[in-house]
Structure formats: C-alpha cells, structure tokens
Amino acid sequence: MSLRTVAGAVFRREMQLFARRKSDWANPIVFFLIVCSLFPFAVGSESEKLKLIGIGVIFVGALLSAMLSLPRLFDDDARDGSLELMLASSEPLAVLILARITALSLGLGAALTIAAPVFALFYALPFAVAGMLALSVAMAVPTLLLIGAIAAALLVSARGGAILTAVLVLPLTIPTLIFGAGAALKVFYGEPPAAELALQGAFLLLALALCPLAAAAALKISTD
C-alpha cells in the first residue's frame, strides 16, 4: 500500500465518522451558540456595547469549541485499538496524523465557519465584518487543531483531560487570536485587513509544517 492510499483511507474514515456521529459537530456548534449568547447577559443588551465585544467573543468562542473537540482526535482510537494500528503502520505517522487533522479541520472548521457569521448577527455586526470573521475562523480553527494535536497526543495516556488541554493549547493560540480577530477589527474600522490575513496564513502554514511532526513524536512518547 502506498502512502497515499493509507493517508487517504485514514482521511475517509475520519470523514465518515464525522458524518455519522452527528454529536461530533452538533455539540461544538451548540456550545459555540451558548457561549456567544451568554455575553450579552453579562455585558448588557445595548447594541453599541455588543458591537465592540462581538468580534472577540465570537472568535474566542470558536477557538474554545474547537479546543473541546480535540480529545476526539486520538482518545476514541486509543480505546478501541485503532490507534495501535496506526502506530504500527510502516507509513510515516506524521502524514497519517495530518490526514486526520485535515479531515477534522474540514468538518469542524466548516461547521464553525458557517456558524460564526450567523452568530455575528447577535452582536449587530455589519455583513462585511461577519464575512471577514468567517474567513478568519476558517483559518484559525485548523491552526488550533494542528497545535492542539500535540497536546491531544501527549494527553492520550495522562490524567487531567480538558483543563490541561486548555492550559497547554490556549496560550499557544494567542498569535492566531490576535491576527484573526484583528483582521475582522480592521474591516470593522474600515481599513484593509491584508496584513493580518497574511500573518494568520503564515501561522497556519508554519503549524502545518511543524505540528504533525511534533504530534507524531508526542504520540510515540505517550503510547510508549
């Protein structure tokens, strides 16, 4: 079997699982919706106030709900033994991990990307800002999943779970948060967002190059 066949099989399996287990994408969306609807209760319902916090709340909400999906990258597979098979494969582990992350990014990323501009309506944000927010979220979710894959791989065999994932992953996503939300803010203030988008793209590419290798090393450590 060539690498392409194996990686393709991993990718297809992941996509099928994602399509069949509806809770995998429905729960993150519902969580995202709830987070976005909590803030107006805390801040007040005046639309002027909400406009100012809207971009940040939606962006952070998308990152949090992507983060909560991280355990499903490896945990179920570790339980049913398919992770062992993946580790035993003669193909490079990093590529197989990349195939899984790609599948999750496409599935979950698409769901969150569609949801983000809709939730922007809660905060009375203009359509142009909502559109830019969707683009930013579409780039940020794969970045977070790539970085998070390292933590998820390490935590397969550790205690601590969700909180520890958050402690490890969230600080590392701050650059993406700054420039992702920054791009939408630029549009909000009527300025061109090209620089922020370029930097966000750069982070995504850097994560794409390095994170699968680190996640492969992490998986080998934790399943040793």
């Binding site: 933590a151 390490l154 065999s157 550790a158 205690r159 601590g160 490890l168 040793d224």
Partner: peptide, 20 residues
C-alpha cells in the same frame, strides 16, 4: 509543570513535558 505531573509514569512525564 502541569503536564509533567499528569503522568503516573515519570519517564513518560519527562519526555512529554520536554516536548511541550
């Protein structure tokens, strides 16, 4: 520090936290 403490197997915790 939290990651190093999260493993029962100290050696695993060593290498995992080193990676992070």
């Amino acid at each position: 520090m939290a990651l190093a403490a999260a493993f029962d197997d100290k050696k695993k915790g060593d290498r995992a936290s080193a990676l992070i």
